[in-house]
């Protein structure tokens, strides 16, 4: 085991993947709790598809993938939030509209420029090899911003998540905090998408939160547990990916599925014990 780890970290790209992955997993799981409880999980999914479209456009234009996709995804996040709040096209339908639309644009743009099949694959399913040093620096910076903002606004995020109407009535600017949550989600998705893949990144947001909610009974423990579960699953996933040459993103998600199943079983057993 130690040997595998030592070997893994001797490759710079692997060390980068572990570092960025840990930060992304941390951010995604923290935000995930609020997104899942607010019934916003699908927004994450929509955004990742938009991110795919943006990456495709960036690749064709030969521009920096992160610098192009960040503003596009952030703008879409605000748009999706507005759509799901007050519009004639309601939440889930609006999200499918935007996500499939962006996916189609992405595929179209890629097909118009030839010879990018491996890249498409990388965008959709992620690749730890795709992170350049500048990507890594940007990712670390963004992740730290997300974590700091989350901690700073923790109490307000809780209030807005638990009861928007009450928060609004007692003078909290709900709109701003919903926008902050959307902004942070957009950042996490852009950063995580390169490694985990556009199709799988939402699982990092949804799984740890749901897993942790099986057992935890306080918001703070749900949040902390979610972060721990997420990071551990990422590490195990990356080790499996390295050892058996499986795709990193998929390996991490499989670990999350296993964690979810284990927690669900423990929950059922606990319920039964309490009943008896």
């Amino acid at each position: 085991m130690i040997n595998i780890l030592r070997e893994m970290f001797s490759y710079p790209f692997m060390a980068r993947a572990v570092l960025v992955g840990t930060l992304v997993a941390l951010c995604a799981s923290l935000l995930g709790v609020s997104l899942v409880l607010k019934r916003y999980a699908m927004i994450g999914d929509g955004l990742s598809h938009v991110g795919f479209g943006a990456l495709a456009v960036a690749a064709v234009l030969n521009a920096s993938p992160m610098l192009v996709s960040i503003p596009i995804v952030v703008i879409s996040a605000f748009l999706l939030l507005r759509l799901s709040e007050n519009s004639k096209i309601k939440g889930d339908a609006a999200i499918s509209l935007i996500s499939t639309g962006a996916l189609a644009i992405g595929v179209m743009v890629i097909s118009m420029s030839s010879g990018m099949n491996t890249d498409v694959n990388n965008y959709l399913f992620g690749s730890i090899l795709s992170m350049s040093q500048s990507d890594v620096n940007l990712s670390i910076g963004l992740s730290i911003v997300v974590i700091l903002l989350f901690i700073l606004f923790y109490n307000r995020i809780f209030a807005v998540t638990f009861d928007e109407t009450f928060a609004k009535a007692t003078g909290t600017n709900v709109q701003i905090f919903n926008m902050i949550i959307a902004l942070l989600t957009a950042l996490v998705i852009v950063v995580g998408m390169r490694m985990i893949g556009a199709l799988l990144i939402t699982s990092l947001i949804v799984f740890p939160a749901l897993t942790s909610m099986r057992l935890a009974k306080r918001f703070i423990t749900v949040t902390v547990n979610s972060a721990i579960i997420s990071v551990i699953c990422l590490w195990i996933g990356l080790i499996i990916s390295y050892k058996y040459s499986t795709p990193a993103g998929a390996s991490i998600v499989i670990c999350n599925i296993v964690a979810f199943i284990i927690y669900s079983i423990i929950e059922k057993i606990k319920e039964r014990v309490i009943k008896e």
Partner: peptide, 8 residues
Amino acid sequence: IQADFPAS
């Protein structure tokens, strides 16, 4: 939302 909200 509050029906299954995990908070103390």
